[in-house]
Amino acid sequence: MLVYFSEVFKGHVPPYRHPEAPDRLDFLIEGAREAGADIKEPRMREDVWQLVESVHDRSYVELVRRLCRKGDVQIDGDTYVSAGTCDAAALAVSAVVDAVDRKETALVAARPPGHHAGFAGRALSAPSQGFCIFNTAAIGALYVGEGAAVVDIDVHHGNGTQEILYDRDLLYISTHQHPLTLYPGTGYPEEVGVGRGEGYNVNVPLPPRTGDDLYAKAVDEVVVPVLKQYGPRLIIISLGWDAHREDPLADMNLTLKSYLYVFDAVLRLQKPTIFLLEGGYNRGVIKRGTKALVRLVDAGEFAPGESQTSTDGHTAKRYEEVMREVKSHVGRYWRL
């Protein structure tokens, strides 16, 4: 498996103790190398800023670039800009677009993350940008154009990606912890898209403490059927490892088995698939998960190394209530 990585991505440096820090990539690359991945240094594209401005308001992009020249500036309570942020974010966009051009399965081991960044920074009703600068997943999807699909499995709803793609007939599917219980507070089933995009926005909010058993059910009953009917040309997976039960910033009960389950389901579609790092703040999970992902892609090895979790009765009841709501909205556009 090809992994795009550069030390430039570590130049986005927090001015204070922060969960989204450069050392996340050290653990990712360690896991990738143990699995035998091919590590590739991405190149900075000459058209990178035009690509960024194809998605984000120019005034927002210019603001970020000014802040980079200052260095060590907080955009909001969660999100910062350092002297190396612009180079890191621009190279992340370059890597995603190059991976699209190669039309093969790859992992873009880049930061800062992007799926909370909307047209002008904060997206929808979110109180902050959630550690994100430029929305690399949305930029990649719009670069692909017709037939692009984004599958977001970060524990937090990708409000920025939803905002950007909401009126476009490009598929966005998000599984995330229910917005009543977690930032950014968006991602309800009734948010289905508008105009040309109506029906192409699919939200699957899951109650806190949902286990592997019911996550697999959601993948089988919603994610896979919609993907198959859409027939994507290329799939971008916004990969957040923070839905894992050991992550410090969320409340799900998933193991690497859920991750491998959804990865395998997507890979079985036999379409170019780009895994793009978003969140995930337990360093051990990042390392183990990356290693398992590479082994799955390269050797078809389904080896989570963790026992499956089951959902307790109270949470299972809430899950069924939410899934009825999901199916009532999504089922208007797709056969479930």
Rank of each mutant, 00 (worst) to 15 (best):
D242L: 07
R295V: 01
T255R: 02
R288Y: 03
W241F: 15
I237E: 07
A292C: 06
L276T: 09
V222H: 07
Y281G: 05
L234P: 09
V294Y: 04
A265D: 09
L254Q: 04
Q229T: 14
D242S: 02
V262N: 01
A250N: 08
L239H: 12
Y261F: 08
S258N: 03
W241N: 04
M252T: 12
L227D: 01
I274E: 04
K271R: 13
Y281C: 04
A243V: 09
V224C: 05
W241G: 08
L267N: 06
E221G: 08
G240K: 02
G289H: 00
Y230A: 03
L227P: 15
P232R: 15
D264R: 14
R245E: 11
A250F: 05
E221H: 10
I237D: 01
L249C: 07
D242Y: 01
K228R: 15
G284T: 13
L293W: 09
Y259T: 13
K287V: 04
A265N: 06
K271L: 02
L234C: 08
G289R: 04
L249R: 09
R233F: 13
K257P: 00
S238R: 11
R233H: 09
D251C: 11
N253K: 03
I235Q: 00
D242P: 12
E221W: 05
Y281D: 02
L260P: 00
L277H: 08
G280R: 03
N282W: 12
L277D: 06
L227A: 07
V294M: 03
H244M: 10
L269Y: 10
R288N: 12
K287E: 14
P232V: 14
L239W: 13
G280E: 03
K287G: 13
L227T: 03
K271M: 03
L227H: 06
I235S: 06
R268Y: 04
G284A: 14
E278Y: 05
R288P: 05
G289Y: 00
L254A: 02
R283M: 15
D264M: 09
P225K: 07
A243G: 12
A292G: 09
Y261K: 03
P225H: 07
G240N: 05
Y230T: 11
V266K: 01
R268G: 14
Y230V: 08
V266E: 01
G289A: 07
M252G: 05
L276F: 09
D251Q: 15
R283C: 08
H244R: 12
N282E: 15
T290Q: 05
L249P: 11
F263I: 02
A243Q: 10
P272W: 09
G289T: 05
T290R: 13
P225V: 09
V294G: 00
K271E: 14
D247V: 09
K257V: 10
S258G: 11
